[in-house]
C-alpha cells in the first residue's frame, strides 16, 4: 500500500515536471525540471529495489549529463534570457502531435496484457560484473569492449578539437574562411 502511494507520487512528479520542462521559456529552468523527471525515475528504480540501476541513473543523468547541460547553459546564456514563445501554428501542431502520441500509447497500454516476471531478479552487482566480462553464452564482453573503444574514440576526438589539431581547419582559421567541418568536407 505504502509502495503504491509512493509510486503515484513519483509518477505525478514525473508528469508535472516533464510538462513544465517542455513549456518553460527559460532554458535553465527547463533543464532543472528535466532533472526533476530524471530524479523521480531514479526514485522509481529504488522503489522497485533495482538499486544498481537507480544509482546508475543518478550518476549518469543527474550527476553527469545534467551537470554538462547546466554548465553549457551557464557558458552560453544570459541570466533571465527567455526563449521566444513559438507562434500559433507551431503550438497547434505541437499539441496535436502530443495528443496523437498520448492516444497511441494509451491505446497500447490498455490493450496489451503485461505478463509479470516470475521469480527473483538476480541484480547483484557481482553477478552483473561477471556477466559483463563473460565471453560464453549470455555474456556481454563484446558490447562492453566495443563501447569502451567508442568512448576512447570520443575522448580522442574531444582532445583533437580542443587542441585545434585538425590541419585543414587550422588553415581555414588562418585565412578567415568559415571553419565548419561540413563546408570543408563538401568542397573536398
Amino acid at each position: 500500500m505504502t509502495e503504491r502511494i509512493i509510486f503515484y507520487i513519483l509518477a505525478f512528479i514525473m508528469i508535472v515536471f516533464s510538462l513544465m520542462s517542455v513549456t518553460s521559456t527559460k532554458i535553465i529552468r527547463s533543464a532543472i525540471y528535466l532533472l526533476g523527471v530524471l530524479m523521480a525515475t531514479a526514485g522509481l528504480y529504488f522503489l522497485f529495489n533495482l538499486n544498481f540501476l537507480g544509482a546508475i541513473q543518478l550518476t549518469v543523468y543527474a550527476g553527469g549529463i545534467m551537470v554538462l547541460i547546466v554548465i553549457a547553459i551557464l557558458l552560453t546564456h544570459h541570466v533571465g534570457f527567455g526563449l521566444p514563445v513559438p507562434d500559433k501554428k507551431h503550438m497547434i501542431l505541437g499539441w496535436l502531435a502530443a495528443m496523437i502520441g498520448i492516444t497511441i500509447s494509451f491505446f497500447q497500454f490498455t490493450t496489451h496484457t503485461f505478463k509479470p516476471k516470475i521469480g527473483n531478479l538476480d541484480d547483484r552487482v557481482s553477478k552483473m560484473g561477471a556477466d559483463m566480462l563473460h565471453y560464453g553464452d549470455g555474456g556481454f564482453v563484446l558490447p562492453f569492449e566495443v563501447i569502451s573503444i567508442l568512448l576512447l574514440a570520443g575522448i580522442i576526438a574531444a582532445i583533437t578539437i580542443a587542441k585545434g589539431g585538425i590541419p585543414h581547419l587550422k588553415k581555414r582559421l588562418k585565412s578567415g574562411q568559415p571553419t565548419t567541418v561540413s563546408s570543408s568536407t563538401k568542397k573536398q
Binding site: L35, M39, N51, F52, G54, A55, I56, L58, T59, A62, G63, G64, M66, V67, V70, I71, L74, D123, R124, V125
Partner: peptide, 19 residues
C-alpha cells in the same frame, strides 16, 4: 547492495546545487 556506488552517485548531485 551498491552502497559505495550509491554514495558516489548521490554526492555527484550536490554539485548541481552549487551551479
Amino acid at each position: 547492495d551498491v552502497g559505495v556506488f550509491f554514495l558516489i552517485a548521490v554526492s555527484s548531485v550536490g554539485v548541481l546545487g552549487i551551479l
